[in-house]
Amino acid sequence: MLAIVVVLSLAVGARTIPPATVWEALVDPRPTPEHATIWDGRIPRTLLGIVAGVALGVAGALIQGLTRNPLADPGVLGVNAGAAFFVVIAVGFLGVASISGYVWFAFAGAFVSSVAVYLIGTGGRRDVNPMRLTLAGVALGAVLTGIGSGIALLRPEAFAHMRAWNVGSLDVRSLEPLMTIAPFVLTGLVLAAVASRGLDALAMGEDVAQALGSSVLATRLCSVVAITLLAGAATAATGAIAFVGLMIPHVARRLCGPDQRWIVVFTIVLAPILLLSADVLGRVAVPGEMQAGVVTAFVGAPFLIAIARRRRVIAL
């Protein structure tokens, strides 16, 4: 499925290119309009979709495993909104114009919003209520998004090149965004692999996890750092794309069971399928183009409602 979606991402757009021409461009590129379209636009876009999809999906899997909250993802819990807000601050007031500059602000925003949502949602108590965390994340995300939109309206010249980014888009014309975030995503994936085993033990309770030799503090710290790197990097490159990290871990859990390590592995393959499919659909759904973040919202919002209506929403 991933291979098919990658081919569609390279072939489908304002100008549909036959798969044979796509293959020819990959193995024997020549200075033709079709080959230029593939190399200058669609290959960077497709590769970014793969990496950003992996980052958002695994971040969602880690958040759900850490909080035992089936409603959690970087978008719903306000992590993406925090990263995007700090990027708006960097662009609007500090004049940062390149992704290599504001990616650090995205990391800071993702971390600050994660901590803020956790503190607001738990109220200082040790027990974690999934619904309370979700409400805190949605509220904080709405506030930060509103303030960020106001700043963008006050300084339109600074945000002219980021209009598509504001709603979540893969529309890039070079490999610079991908090359900038790739090391951080790779580091986040390594930390996710390290934290996965501890999350399986933590699911049985802190006391049981400690009895099994798992360090609860190390697992939580490793998970938070991984979530910050993955969500912050993806948001810096593509904008605040929501619901990828919500839907995909549930699909992976249906396929492989509750083992967090396998959930992460399946998510790495499944999340890019969703994000690239949304991007391809957005190219042909309306005249011009609909950003991938809008398409994932159309699909993810009903998914969130369906999960929230389940009686066993608290138990993963």
Rank of each mutant, 00 (worst) to 15 (best):
A25N: 05
P19I: 07
S214T: 15
T32N: 04
P177F: 10
P156Y: 09
A20T: 12
Y102C: 11
S223I: 01
A242Y: 00
P287I: 10
A201R: 10
V265M: 11
T122M: 11
A55P: 06
A3I: 15
T46D: 01
L62M: 13
P272N: 01
H161P: 01
D28Q: 13
T37V: 12
Q64I: 05
A164G: 10
L229W: 10
T267K: 00
S114L: 15
A164V: 10
A81K: 05
V76Q: 05
F105E: 01
T67E: 03
W262K: 13
P272I: 04
R163V: 13
A160M: 10
A242R: 03
A108V: 14
L276Y: 12
A209N: 09
P44Q: 13
A139P: 05
C256I: 12
A116L: 15
I147W: 06
L10R: 08
L246D: 07
G123K: 10
P19E: 02
L153M: 15
V225S: 04
M1E: 05
A297I: 09
L10V: 13
A236W: 08
V103I: 15
G257L: 04
R254Y: 08
F85C: 07
W104Y: 15
A203N: 12
V251W: 01
V280L: 10
R125H: 15
A72F: 13
H161W: 00
R197G: 02
T187Y: 01
R283W: 00
A14L: 03
G49N: 09
D28V: 06
G49V: 12
W39R: 14
A192Q: 02
A192T: 02
L77K: 14
R15K: 14
L71F: 06
R312G: 15
T238P: 05
